[in-house]
Design a protein around this nucleic acid. Structure first.
Length: 166
DNA sequence: CCCTGATTCGC
DNA sequence: GCGAATCAGG
């Protein structure tokens, strides 16, 4: 039922650049088809050419969130502990870099993981920004080729690579 | 496959 | 007027 109120909200959200499905969720109890249909009838159709570019995703909203780290391969017992402070800082840089590389489309949650999806974790598991890579697994490994490359390098080499000392 | 908006057409 | 089904595109 399109009350004046809901139509008003629809106009606002549509002009704010939200997608039809997002608006459908906001309004509730309605499908994106209904939203699109209404948008057409209102003559609001035709927006920004590239919605993807129009909606820049936020990153690093939190300044100093507590870091909960997941276990990662290639960590070597004692030495890992010794270099933890340094690694911590660099890990955040790595996350930022990786987060900008992994396409939105393939990212997935824990429950969405499955055979053939890269299980590499990106970010702080406690954060809403956290996600698993979800890329195509390579050669039966649980990682995509990109992350497999990182996973099987010793910590030292990985750090060197990040610091441009390769 | 995930998603996007556009269009059609029976209700 | 409404929106599910379908289409075309990324």
């Amino acid at each position: 039922m399109w009350t004046d109120e809901r139509v008003e909200l629809l106009k606002k959200l549509w002009n704010d650049g939200l997608s039809a499905s997002q608006i459908a969720v906001e309004l509730g109890g309605i499908t994106r088809n209904a939203v699109i249909g209404k948008v057409h009838r209102l003559g609001l159709s035709g927006r920004a050419k590239s919605p993807a570019a129009a909606v820049p995703r936020q990153r690093k909203p939190r300044a100093a969130a507590p870091i909960l780290r997941v276990a990662r391969p290639a960590m070597r017992g004692n030495t890992a502990l010794a270099r933890a402070p340094v690694y911590e800082v660099e890990y955040e840089q790595e996350v930022e870099a990786v987060a900008n590389v992994v396409p939105m489309g393939q990212r997935c949650t824990l429950l969405e993981l499955g055979e053939g999806k890269c299980r590499w974790p990106v970010g702080d598991p406690g954060s809403t920004d956290f996600f698993f890579c979800g890329g195509r697994t390579s050669d039966g490994l649980p990682y995509c080729s990109y992350h497999a490359r990182i996973a099987y390098q010793p910590v030292d080499r990985r750090r060197d690579k990040r610091l441009g000392r390769v």
